[in-house]
Every structure is written in structure tokens, then in C-alpha cells.
């Protein structure tokens, strides 16, 4: 019984050092993946001569999609409580916007036409730890601004809201521990650089290295 109590007492300092305290700062970064989404379909229609039909004459058809892409993530946060971390986040990616061009009225060969979109997300995220210990699960959510710039084009801005969860684990112990962090989330974007100009929900996954002090 005494041995058991001592063991618990000996463990406490180590665990306590691994857990952040109120006011702790955490910096981190990593890489990830953002999923693709449909970007709209459109027809290049001409006004039909009424004597030749009643439906528009379609010169060609476009079916578009934003492709998945790698992301670069940077975050800096502060612990409001030992379990609640509030972070400013930045994410960068360069997904391709691809249009499949088909059904040409005069027989042009169907092709895929691409352009690249630089995508920047600036936001704030709250992360709540569900437990303490080795592998620590958490839930997260936040919002921000999405800025997308097609190559050579104008900046498009949109609201971004995300929610998800993940897991983290301390790699080192002490006053300034390193930890690894993995997260999966769903990102709602009020508008994207796609052609449909509508909201989309895309999956995001990321993994990174965090440093607390």
C-alpha cells in the first residue's frame, strides 16, 4: 500500500509537467490534406433559331471540380485552461481548379483544362481536450476567412467554419514539451473559387508538431 502511494506521488510531477497550465503558449506547424469538391457545371449556350428547335444550342459543356491538395499549417495558441486551447491558425494550399470541356458542337476534342488556385485560410480555433494522459483526444472548432486567388486573377474571399477532432501525444516532458497532433475536420466554405459560387463542405486532415512553453 505504501509502495502504491509513493508510486503515485512520484508520477504526479512528471504528468503535471506534461500538461499545460493556464497561460501556456503553444506554437506549431504541420502538413495536411484538403479534399476536393464539385465546382459547378455550365453550358456555353447560344440562343436557338426558333425554326430549328426550342432548346438552346449548346456550343460546349463544362463540368468542373476543385481537386484535393496538400496543405501547410501554422498555428499559435494560448491555453485558457489546462484543457482549452485557443489558437490563431493559418493554412495554405494550392489546389487545382479543373474543368472538363466536352460535347463540343463542332467536334473539338474533349479535354481537361486546369488552373491553380492559391488558397489562404486565416482563422481562430478552439481545442478542448477530452482527457489527460498519453494519447489525448480532443474536439475542435472555429472560424476564419478564406482567401483564394486563381493564378492571375482577383482575390475571392469567403467565410470558413470548421469542426472536427483529433488526438495528440506528448513526445517530451518538462516545462517546454513537444507533442504531435493529428486532426480531421469538416470545413464549411461560404464560397470558393469554383465556378458555382456556392458553399461547400470539404474534409481536411492534418498532422503537426507542437511546442508549448
Amino acid at each position: 500500500m505504501i509502495r502504491a502511494v509513493l508510486g503515485w506521488l512520484l508520477l504526479v510531477p512528471a504528468v503535471a509537467c506534461a500538461q499545460p497550465h493556464r497561460g501556456s503558449i503553444e506554437l506549431g506547424g504541420g502538413i495536411g490534406w484538403v479534399g476536393g469538391s464539385a465546382a459547378g457545371s455550365a453550358a456555353a449556350n447560344e440562343t436557338r433559331n426558333p425554326s430549328t428547335g426550342s432548346t438552346p444550342l449548346t456550343l460546349f459543356q463544362t463540368d468542373s471540380r476543385t481537386l484535393s491538395a496538400a496543405t501547410l499549417d501554422v498555428r499559435a495558441g494560448v491555453y485558457i485552461t489546462p484543457r482549452l486551447l485557443v489558437s490563431a491558425t493559418f493554412q495554405y494550399s494550392r489546389p487545382a481548379l479543373r474543368a472538363h470541356l466536352s460535347s463540343d458542337f463542332e467536334g473539338a476534342t474533349s479535354i481537361d483544362a486546369d488552373t491553380t488556385v492559391s488558397s489562404y485560410t486565416f482563422g481562430a480555433t478552439g481545442e478542448y481536450r477530452l482527457s489527460a494522459g498519453g494519447w489525448v483526444p480532443f474536439v475542435s472548432g472555429g472560424a476564419g476567412q478564406l482567401r483564394q486567388v486563381p493564378d492571375g486573377g482577383d482575390v475571392l474571399t469567403a467565410a470558413e467554419i470548421h469542426a472536427g477532432g483529433g488526438i495528440r501525444r506528448a513526445l517530451t516532458h518538462g516545462r517546454r514539451p513537444f507533442s504531435i497532433r493529428g486532426e480531421a475536420s469538416a470545413s464549411f466554405r461560404s464560397r470558393t473559387a469554383g465556378f458555382d459560387q456556392r458553399h461547400h463542405v470539404v474534409p481536411i486532415a492534418s498532422a503537426g508538431l507542437m511546442w508549448s512553453f
Binding site: F60, D104, I111, A113, D151, G152, D154
Partner: peptide
């Protein structure tokens, strides 16, 4: 023919 890229 189409151009093989989109133009912003």
C-alpha cells in the same frame, strides 16, 4: 480546339 488551361 480548347485551350488546355483555364485563364483568370
Amino acid at each position: 480546339a480548347f485551350l488546355s488551361r483555364l485563364v483568370a
